[in-house]
Design a protein around this nucleic acid. Structure first.
Lengths: 342, 342
DNA sequence: TTGTACGCGTTATCAC
DNA sequence: GTGATAACGCGTACAA
């Protein structure tokens, strides 16, 4: 079956292609009756415009693209709803582009820029390890949302929305210390992480130091090589191994909530309980933390506000109202059942 | 900054556009040295081909598209990894297209067919409520994977991979009955559901009947109008309301694992425990069920095998090795802690 | 082995 | 208010 094109519709309606185009795009200069007629024929013939051709011709497609690294990170699920709502409220259309775990988000963004010509891009998660020169290739306004960036990139080259990972991690560990814990293990991201994993480790470390607790390298639990640190499996494996090794701690501070669920299971599997035997603190504030038993003490990122602000900044950029901005939100320490005073 | 096109590259290299095109697509008829030189220039100038133009011209882009309804359903996360791996093993490229919760997947598929010209489509989740005529519009081979279809669609018009939802739900409820439960509530999908929600309800009903337990409409817990039944919130709300109403049951059979976590929380919030006071059984077999406390008894869908088979069928279709097929997989009753004998 | 020229389906710019 | 027609960037016959 041959695909029906705008020309076919024009021929059937006995009008020119431009008139059909006008009907399609709700242009003002068209007779309402003609428009009605054309729309009817379009529906009858199940005509669907070819997006490739449109994108090719259009210089800008009032669309906002969101690039999400990975799909498994539940932290972004809530954010996407907000992003979508905000973008549609501004009468722009929304495309969610999934970025493969191993793919490079900047490359994907560059391809998207050519293909769909969005007027703005929001990056969600992952990490951009590029030079300034590479970043400059992207001519579409963009905002980095909870995403790590390589060291020393000039701040004026991009916008961002995030939390202060170092400070908030420090906050959480201080809380654990106040609750009487002194042997606090950190379930970490990769050892060579330069993004949020690194920052949360720094916060852990500095909280210990400022409370006069010596930093013990043996209490930092890195994933096995090749394992994704932000998974439940990883939390499970490293803590299981830790507990079996005979080393001990009274609390686990975990790099993400998701990982923390794995930690809880490892504790349970060893015949111990959270929080009676071990306290567990997560990071992110995903919904499941509230539903889990025991409910998870965590550092909650204000993801709704962050998503809103990302859109706000992006539109300021698009409409030339302001230059690049960096907005850092406070996180909230949510005290739940998984941490107890000892 | 003007975008660099194939013409620019051709001009810079002092060759024709077709030579550049040949270099890009690794065509055989090209001098290796010319090719090297062109590739170098391309890299230097950060040239990125415009996909819209390519798609417009190309007849078929050896790509397999996967349409996923919603992103929040954790059941599909594992499946996508397998799909991606299998597709790439066959030397095809893979695109994951997100379908909005409210959007219609067939419409998205039709647009994608025009735009990207994939050689095959896999639908993941959701439900297709269309007529045969509508289904016939899609000329690309496709496979429906765990997806509901309207009643009475001719089987020869599509391929599918699924489980027998009625039978497996029946199985689960029979298990609950064997464990001594007689007042079993069903946390259901929407009342007007015609897809898996409906089938799981039918299975629940028929299990009760075949064990001589009268069906009690008051034990079927539908979501509030507008709520997504497959969320934790929904599980929480309907069961909380149920328990507060003074009605009682000894077990909850829940339409999905995700919903079941909400049910567990509702029970905990009422000062009761799972499974001591109430047994809870889920459906799907997502990873979190194993990590949850108590671990969740569930009906596990063999999602890896299902994903593999979906790809297998799709390639048989594409390469004309066979017509439409329907493959129904057995699910596995995974007995964990959330259900106890009474 | 390489270059020229046409066409893919659409939108935008004209002239009518 | 409407209809030709020229781009948009690329792949590909076909000619060289």
């Amino acid at each position: 079956m041959e695909s029906v094109t705008i020309k076919d519709i024009a021929r059937i309606c006995g009008v020119g292609v431009s008139t059909v185009s006008r009907a399609l795009n709700d242009h003002p200069d068209i007779n309402p009756e003609t428009k009605e007629m054309i729309k009817r024929v379009i529906a009858e013939h199940h005509y669907i415009p070819n997006n490739s051709a449109r994108n090719l011709k259009r210089m800008e497609s009032n669309t906002i693209a969101v690039l999400m690294k990975g799909i498994t990170n539940p932290f972004f699920h809530g954010m996407i709803k907000v992003l979508e709502r905000e973008v549609e409220r501004k009468k722009y259309s929304f495309i969610l582009q999934h970025v493969d775990e191993e793919a490079d988000e900047l490359t994907v963004a560059l391809e998207l820029e050519k293909e769909k010509k969005p007027c703005g891009i929001i990056f969600l998660g992952g990490a951009i390890g590029h030079t300034e020169a590479a970043l400059k290739q992207l001519n579409t306004p963009f905002v980095l949302c909870t995403i790590g960036l390589g060291q020393g990139i000039e701040k004026s080259l991009y916008s961002s929305v995030s939390i202060d990972d170092v400070k908030e991690a420090q906050e959480m560990v201080s809380y654990l210390i106040e609750m009487g814990h002194r042997r606090i293990a950190f379930v970490a991201a990769r050892e060579d992480d330069t993004a949020i994993g690194r920052m949360r480790l720094d916060g852990y470390r500095s909280a210990l130091e400022s409370h006069g607790i010596p930093f013990d390298e043996g209490l930092v639990l890195y994933p096995e090589k090749g394992d994704n640190p932000y998974t439940m499996e990883n939390g499970y494996h490293v803590v299981k191994k830790f507990l079996e090794s005979g080393k001990d701690a009274t609390a686990f501070f975990v790099v993400s909530d998701n990982t923390a669920f794995g930690v809880c299971k490892a504790v349970a599997d060893m015949g111990k309980r959270v929080p009676q035997d071990y306290s567990v603190a997560g990071f992110d504030g995903i919904q499941m933390g509230d539903y889990y038993c025991p409910s998870l003490t965590t550092m909650k990122q204000p993801c709704d506000e962050m998503a809103k602000e990302a859109v706000e900044i992006l539109f300021d950029l698009i409409e030339g109202r302001s230059g690049n901005r960096h907005r850092i939100f406070p996180a909230e320490l949510v005290k739940r059942e998984s941490v107890r005073r000892i």
